[in-house]
Design a protein around this nucleic acid. Structure first.
Lengths: 324, 324
DNA sequence: GCTGGGTATGAAAATAATTTTCTATAATTA
DNA sequence: TAATTATAGAAAATTATTTTCATACCCAGC
C-alpha cells in the first residue's frame, strides 16, 4: 500500500470524527477521490469543504489539489506491482537468496519512487535555501538515522559548510544550545518519535535556528516540531526491518538537498568540492605495507606495468573525482 | 513512455502553434506540469489559460485538472525520468530543482537495478556463509565508504556478531592483525584503490581471515586482493559525484548480505534482533526537556489528549520495532 | 453545576483557478 | 477580393478552493 494510505490508516485512531469520515472514505476507494472536486468529497462525507482543506493540510499537503495529484501518482505505483515489483514486499525467514534479492530490489526501488512522488518541491527548496544561508549546520540522528546524518555531514564538510553530526545525545544538545538565528538544525528519525533527537531539535528551535525534520511520512512529533518537514516513504505495517528501505529513501533526499545546494551556489561550492578531493589524493600517505601494491598488481590484470598503472591512476582520479 | 505523452509526441505535427508550444513544454518535463496551475503553464508557454483548457479538451480530458491527475498517474507508472529504465543522468549546475530530482531518481533507480543484475548469487552466498561462520568480523572503509561500513556494523551488532568498523586507519590495521582463520574482513571502497583500505584488507588476509571486497564493478586492487569480490554498479565515465549512487548501491548489497545472514540463521539471529530493539525502547531515557512533549503536542494535532498519545506510542513501538 | 480554555467544525467571505463566451485577427480558399 | 475558417486572447462567468470568523462542544477545575 502506498505511504499516504498507509499513514492514513495508521492515524485513523487519532483523528477527529470529521477527519476520520474523510480518511475512511479515501481509504475505501482512493481511485475515485482523485476524480472528485473538494465539494463532492465533502458532501459524500457530510462535512464542509473547509474540513477537507484542513484535512489535507494536516497531512502536510499544500491543499486538496496537491493531495489529489500525489495520491494519483501513488495509487498508480501500486497498480504496477508485480511486473516491475513496485510494491513493498516483506522479508521473511529461510528464503532462497534469489527471493531475498528480488524482494530487496523491489523494496528499495519502491521506496525511492514513493519518496520522490511525495516530495514537496517548495519545501525542499526552502530547506536548500536555509542550508545555503546557514552560518552553521547541526545534524541529529540516533542509530540507523545517525548513518544518514553522518553521510550529510561528510558532504557538507566537503563544500566548506561548518557543521556537526554528533551521535552522542549530550553533545547534540550542547551543540544545539549554541546555534543562532540563521543557523540550521536537521533532525533525522525514521519514526519521528526518537526522544533524544526531538530534544535536540527543540533545543535548536529555542536557540533560534531554522529546524528541518526528515522522517517517514505521517504525523509525528519531529515533523510537528520542525519549521520545514521533509518526508521519506513509510512502509506498511508488519514490514519488519523497514529501516533498510527508509535509510535508502532518506539518503535519496539528502542527495537531492546536497545537489540542490551545490547547484544553487555553484561557483562557491564546486571549487571547494574539487579541491577537497584533490587534496585527499595529494596528501594521502602512500601504502604502509609496500608489498601490497606488488601483490595486488600481480593479481589485477589491468596493472601489468608501471606505465599502465600510472595512466590508470590518473584516469581514475579524473573519473571518480568525487569518490573514494 | 506513457500513452498520453506518446500520443502528444505523435500528434505534435498536427497541432496548431499555440498547442504545440504546450505539448512541447509538457513533453519536456511532465513531472513539473502536475504541480502547476493552468495560469502558470499558460504563462510559461506564452499562451492564454483558455488555450490550455482547449488543449486538454482536444485530448479528450474533462479539463486541465483532469489532465493533471491522469498525467500524474501515468508518469508514476513508468517513472518519467530515465524513461528507458536504465540510463544514468549526469548532474550539472544551475538546474531547477525538478530536474535535479528527476536525475537523482533516475540515477538511484538505475544503480540499484544495475547492481542487482550484476549480482553473482554464488559469490553472494559464499560471502553470507563466511559471515555466518565468522567468530569476528572486521569492516574497513574510508570517507564515503565508511558510512557503508558503519551501516553494516550497526546491523551486525544487533544480531550479536562481534565486529569492528574503525574509521581510523591505524585501528583498522591493528584490528586486522588480530584476526584469525575463520574470521571475516570486509573492505568497502568505490574505486577499489583506496590505499588505507587495501592495506587493512591485505593485513587481514595475512592473518588468515576470509577477505571480502565491495567495490564498483571492474578490475581494481581491492577486488584482486579479496577472496570474495562483490561489486556495485559503476557509473559512466564523466559522472561526477558518482559516489551518491554508488553508496546507495553498496547499501543495497549490505542489505542483501544482512538479510541473507538472518535468513540463514533465523532462529539464532531473530530473537537477538528483536531483543535489541525492545531493549533500546525499554532502557531509553525519557526526554530531558519535559516541555518538548508538551509543545510538540500543541503543534501535532494527532496528539490531542494523553490517552490518544499513549495509544499512539504503544502502537508505534509495535509498528516500527526495528527502526529509530 | 458552572466557568474557562482549548478543540472541532461549518458558514460565509475572499481568493484563486478554471472554463466559457465572445471577438478579433490571420490564414485559406473560392 | 470577399467569404470562410482556424486560431487564439480578453474578459466574463463559473466553479473550486482557501481563509476567516463565529459558534458549539467537550472537559478539567472550581
Amino acid at each position: 500500500m502506498s505511504p499516504i494510505l498507509h499513514a492514513l490508516k495508521h492515524d485513523l485512531a487519532t483523528l477527529s470524527p470529521g477527519e476520520r469520515k474523510l480518511a475512511e472514505r479515501i481509504l475505501a476507494s482512493p481511485g475515485e477521490i482523485v476524480h472528485m472536486g473538494i465539494t463532492e468529497l465533502a458532501e459524500q462525507c457530510q462535512v464542509s469543504p473547509a474540513a477537507v482543506t484542513r484535512f489535507c493540510k494536516l497531512l502536510h499537503f499544500k491543499g486538496f489539489p496537491d493531495f489529489k495529484v500525489k495520491l494519483a501518482a501513488e495509487i498508480a505505483h501500486g497498480d504496477a506491482a508485480g511486473a516491475d515489483g513496485s510494491s513493498y514486499q516483506d522479508i521473511v525467514a529461510g528464503n532462497p537468496l534469489a527471493v531475498i534479492v528480488e524482494a530487496m530490489q523491489a523494496n528499495h526501488l519502491a521506496s525511492i519512487r514513493d519518496t520522490t512522488s511525495l516530495l514537496d518541491l517548495e519545501r525542499m527548496q526552502a530547506a536548500i535555501d536555509a542550508l545555503c544561508r546557514a552560518r552553521r549546520v547541526d545534524l541529529y540522528g540516533m542509530a540507523t538515522s545517525s548513518i544518514v546524518a553522518q553521510d550529510f555531514y561528510q558532504k557538507l564538510v566537503r563544500i566548506g559548510v561548518s557543521c556537526t553530526a554528533f551521535s552522542d545525545s549530550h553533545m547534540q544538545i550542547t551543540s544545539a544550545s549554541s546555534l543562532a538565528a540563521g543557523d540550521v538544525a536537521l533532525a533525522v528519525s525514521y519514526s519521528g518519535e526518537t526522544p533524544e533527537t526531538a530534544d535536540a531539535l527543540e533545543c535548536a528551535r529555542r536557540s533560534g535556528a531554522t529546524t528541518i525534520s526528515l522522517t517517514a511520512y505521517g504525523n509525528n512529533t519531529l515533523a510537528a516540531l520542525a519549521d520545514i518537514s521533509l518526508f521519506s516513504s513509510s512502509l506498511e505495517q508488519g514490514m519488519r526491518r523497514g529501516d533498510m528501505a527508509s535509510r535508502i529513501a532518506q539518503l535519496h533526499i539528502i542527495d537531492i538537498l546536497f545537489t540542490g545546494m551545490v547547484s544553487t551556489r555553484f561557483t562557491d561550492f564546486i571549487p571547494k568540492l574539487e579541491q577537497s578531493y584533490r587534496n585527499v589524493q595529494q596528501y594521502r600517505h602512500k601504502s604502509a605495507l609496500p608489498e601490497v601494491e606488488a601483490s595486488a598488481q600481480a593479481r589485477a590484470k589491468n596493472q601489468r606495468n608501471p606505465l599502465a598503472n600510472e595512466q590508470k591512476e590518473d584516469h581514475e582520479y579524473e573519473r571518480s573525482d568525487f569518490s573514494q
